[in-house]
Every structure is written in structure tokens, then in C-alpha cells.
């Protein structure tokens, strides 16, 4: 990704993050969060992680944002009243963030290895295609065909890794989603019974 695009999308992302904290109205904050996540998805796509970028937009800017807006609407929240913030939490928060920044500067002042992204040109992609051919006969697969035509089949590679190397975590994740669904239903039912 060219440098100016990187800085453009990072600026969008960071302005969105500042706006989440700064706005008084929760609806404005939710929309600012979406702006921030759209910038982040653009950064993901610039890093050639196309699948993650699309998922970021679908899940965060789609599902989670709607969930937040729905809850804000359900609770009928108004603009937050300006309150005298007590000094102690404000100071504690700023000190915490300052310490984090000092750590960040300390880490980033060292030159990390691999400063420049390794190239992803046609030569690299074609060379990687050999590893994705099937069996002794080297039968071409969908992944190796895309790689040979000079495209990065991001979704296919992630799918392959997900269902081979990470199959057990995937199934545990399914159980987790089921548990959270049941949990949410139970939570809402119980509070309804109390009323």
C-alpha cells in the first residue's frame, strides 16, 4: 500500500477513535466507531489480508454496530449530562495512558527486523504454488492455480488452514458461540421474570 494511503486511512481510524471518546451522544459514538473500523478494514486490505478486512466490515460495522444502536434505542439514552469529573480518575487515566505511550516509544525506538514488507509479486506467488499441489502426482488445486495466475487466494488459504491446522479451536469456538447464545437468552429471561 502506498504511504499516503496508509496515512490517510490511519488518520481516519484515529479520528474515529478520538470521536468515540469525545462525543456526548452515544449514537454519535457508535457511528464514530464504525468510521474507525472502516479505516481499519482498509488498512487490513492494504496488508493483503482481504478476508480479515471484509470480515471486519461485516461483523463490526454491520452486526456489532447494529447491536449497539439497538441497545441505545432500547434504553432510550439521552445526551450525557456534563458532570464535574472528579480529579482522581481523570489523573489516573491520563497517567496510565502516558505510561503506555512511554513504553510504546521505548519499543519503537529499536529498529525491528523486516522493516519493509517482503514483496508479493508474481514470482513469489508462482514459487509458492508448488507447495499447494496435491499428492505425489502434483495435481493442481484451486489455490495453486490462483497463485500461478498471480493472485493471492487469501480466502482459500485461510479456509485450508482453518479446517486442517486449527480444526479443534474452530469447534471449540462453535461451542463458545452456542454457550453465549444460551447465556444471552437466559439473562434476558431472568430479568423479565424479576419484573
Amino acid at each position: 500500500m502506498p504511504s499516503y494511503l496508509f496515512w490517510l486511512f490511519s488518520t481516519i481510524m484515529l479520528i474515529g477513535s478520538v470521536a468515540v471518546i469525545a462525543f456526548r451522544n452515544p449514537v454519535s459514538s457508535a457511528l464514530a466507531m464504525v468510521t474507525s473500523f472502516v479505516g481499519l478494514a482498509a488498512l487490513f486490505i492494504g496488508l493483503s489480508a482481504f478476508f480479515v478486512g471484509v470480515i471486519q466490515i461485516l461483523v463490526y460495522s454491520g452486526a456489532i454496530m447494529v447491536l449497539f444502536l439497538f441497545i441505545i434505542m432500547l434504553l432510550d439514552l439521552k445526551d450525557e449530562k456534563r458532570r464535574a469529573n472528579s480529579l482522581a480518575p481523570l489523573a489516573a487515566g491520563l497517567v496510565l495512558v502516558a505510561v503506555f505511550f512511554i513504553q510504546l516509544v521505548g519499543v519503537l525506538s529499536h529498529k525491528l527486523p523486516n522493516q519493509i514488507a517482503p514483496p508479493l509479486n508474481k514470482a513469489v506467488l508462482t514459487a509458492a504454488a508448488e507447495g499447494y499441489k496435491k499428492g505425489e502426482m502434483k495435481v493442481p488445486t484451486k489455490i495453486s492455480e490462483s497463485l500461478e495466475s498471480g493472485q493471492l487466494p487469501d480466502v482459500h488459504i485461510i479456509g485450508l488452514t482453518l479446517f486442517t491446522q486449527y480444526n479443534l479451536p474452530l469447534q471449540i469456538l462453535g461451542v463458545l458461540l452456542l454457550v453465549s447464545t444460551v447465556g444471552v437468552v437466559t439473562l434476558s429471561r431472568k430479568s423479565a421474570a424479576n419484573n
Binding site: L47, S48, A49, F51, V52, P118, L120, V124, L125, A127, A128, G131, L152, I157, I158, T161, L162, Q165, Y166
Partner: peptide, 10 residues
């Protein structure tokens, strides 16, 4: 193999 590491994206 020169491609982005899929484990990170996983």
C-alpha cells in the same frame, strides 16, 4: 513459502 503467515490472520 513467501506468503503472509495465515496463523496470524487465524
Amino acid at each position: 513459502n513467501g506468503l503472509p503467515d495465515p496463523s496470524g490472520q487465524m
